[in-house]
Design a protein around this nucleic acid. Structure first.
Lengths: 339, 339
DNA sequence: GTGAAAGCGCTAACAT
DNA sequence: ATGTTAGCGCTTTCAC
């Protein structure tokens, strides 16, 4: 690799082609008023020299960069990956390229504190727009448009994409209740998140509608991690009157439940019905019933919205709801537990 | 969101603090020769105004940006995700942030053709260094260092990280042979890839060492996709004398095999042993034996190497080998197939 | 210890 | 149809 500190610039191209920088710039930006012959010559020189205009310089002149930014706290979780896939899909269909920004670890910079900083960093210089996942901040100052996915704040000042968390939980519960389950355990998410609260509400409402009691002993405080969910599962199964089904309020939690049932030699869904929320990797292979296929969609929709905004199109609704979907991977039946 | 086109710049800070821009710049860059009192005042103004210096302008002046770039053709595959996780881990431990660049779809821009362009775009302006996955190009012009993972070219002019593909395939095969398998199907990868060739060589060598015949009918041309692998699997199982085990040369292929066995009601590993290469999502849950846990490591190592290079440290070896590892998820036994 | 001024590579008037 | 030039926001000599 010619790891030269010396980069080819527009000047070099101009010189080599025997024209001025502005003429090269015109060709670069597809302006019409350049002679065919000159245009061709310049194009040739550009290719021969392998010239690429500097992103930094271009964006400093306030140009479109054709870059969309995606800010995520951490990219190593199924949820994050699904969002990326959805964004990726929309990007693939567009003229934009994607820049995913991550600090590698929430704990490194202390998330919320620095959200505005990331926004400024990207949107005030190199990106034409930004998608930000689960922002804690309710208010951003930004030179370019922003769309958020699953914002924590109740009434953010930026457009956002949500899922029908309440309805999804309702669906999941009605499915379980329809199978005959009467005692259904619930592993909650982090209560400060809107989505977690809505899912819990759906759980409660479904029980009430079915005339089933809401047993507090069956509602355990999870935190969207596998480890905590494993602890919760053990606790639930150790109850004197254990649940016959468990509703895990996110992907990581569902995997936790799965893991414990596996260790205990319990079969799903024969011995215990399990429904998880969010995309569980290879749920189909695991025979898991899930409320999913909406996370990617959120990424997709958010990106579409953002591209509209960049294009100067005003959104009809600032908040977009993505329909959740219950995917039944297998039929479940309840076994009468002998304690 | 105050979606102002008006951004706060260093000028505004200087004005508000009653100093010159250069003084603000000095504070920004932690220069020492600024009066305590002035420093504090400026710092305060910066915070009050929520000022963030423009990435574009900063990088144009040839500064360190503390940004590492990762170029991937597509981010929606297990392989890509594992690489990202590894890179992410190294980034989390460092002072750098990560910028993942993707065009969303290989087909959109025609990959190799534009690799140099991406390199220039990022490395000649906003990133301090670049990791590039499976580059086709053998030669890059770049202002900042580059480290590649799994380059296609034989002797690239940039440092690279590889896996012990040959040894891994050998291990996988010896495991299968150790179980008593004599007829082992092989679904190959894209032959233009170094890694695919090495895996095939490992397959062949293992058979020869064991004194087993290399049956061409058992070696099918895959292309690292699930669809093709499914076709190959059906073909293999339809043979008059079908294999009792299959070695899939990557993750997507292994999932293809898995899918078909599922459709046919075959149990793994009872009816057919399956070993896959590369990280298969939740292989543990699927009881799949795999050669894996090295992809993330490649990303991790590559990032470490890159950070060294950025810091001006010369690498001891330009090429780094990451050890593959065979993970046995379950024990397999052969069933005598009745045709 | 601080300010003035010269550019980094580029685009967009404004000339010619 | 092409060249000249003034900045974009920043860092960095070089003065004071």
């Amino acid at each position: 690799m010619r790891h030269t500190k010396q980069t080819i610039k527009i000047q070099d191209v101009a010189q080599a082609a025997g024209v001025s920088v502005s003429t090269v710039s015109r060709v670069l930006n597809g302006k019409v008023d350049v002679a065919e012959e000159t245009q061709a010559r310049i194009q040739q020189v550009i290719e021969r020299l392998g010239y690429t205009s500097s992103l930094a310089a271009r964006s400093m002149r306030g140009q479109k960069t054709n870059l969309v930014g995606l800010i995520m706290p951490d990219i190593a979780f199924p949820y994050a990956i699904e969002v990326m896939k959805g964004v990726n899909r929309a990007i693939a269909e567009s003229e934009y390229d994607l820049l995913v920004y991550t600090t590698g670890d929430i704990r490194k910079h202390g998330t919320a504190l620095h959200e505005q900083q990331y926004v400024s960093l990207l949107n005030n210089s190199i990106t034409d727009g930004l998608i930000i996942v689960a922002p804690a901040e309710a208010d951003f100052v930004s030179a370019a448009p922003i769309v958020s996915i699953d914002p924590l704040a109740m009434n953010p000042n930026y457009p956002s994409v949500h899922a029908t968390n309440y309805q999804g939980a309702l669906d999941a519960m009605q499915y379980l209740i329809g199978l005959g389950h009467q005692r259904i355990g619930f592993i909650s998410g982090r209560t400060e998140l809107e989505s977690a609260t809505r899912r819990l509400n759906g759980y409660r409402e479904a029980l009430q509608r079915a005339g089933l009691p809401v047993d507090q002993a069956l509602i355990l405080a999870g935190d969207y991690t596998t480890e905590t969910a494993m602890r919760c599962t053990r606790e639930l199964l150790a109850l004197e009157n254990p649940p016959t089904a468990i509703f895990a309020s996110n992907d990581q939690s569902a995997l936790g439940v799965f893991q414990v049932t596996r260790e205990l030699g319990l079969r799903i869904p024969e011995d215990l019905s399990l429904v998880g929320f969010d995309n569980i990797p290879d749920a189909a292979y695991l025979n898991l019933t899930t409320v999913d296929q909406f996370i990617g969609e959120m990424g997709y929709i958010a990106t579409k919205m953002l591209i509209d905004l960049i294009g100067g199109i005003t959104l009809v609704e600032k908040t977009h709801q993505v329909q959740t979907e219950l995917v039944v991977r297998s039929s479940c039946k309840i076994l009468e537990k002998t304690k």
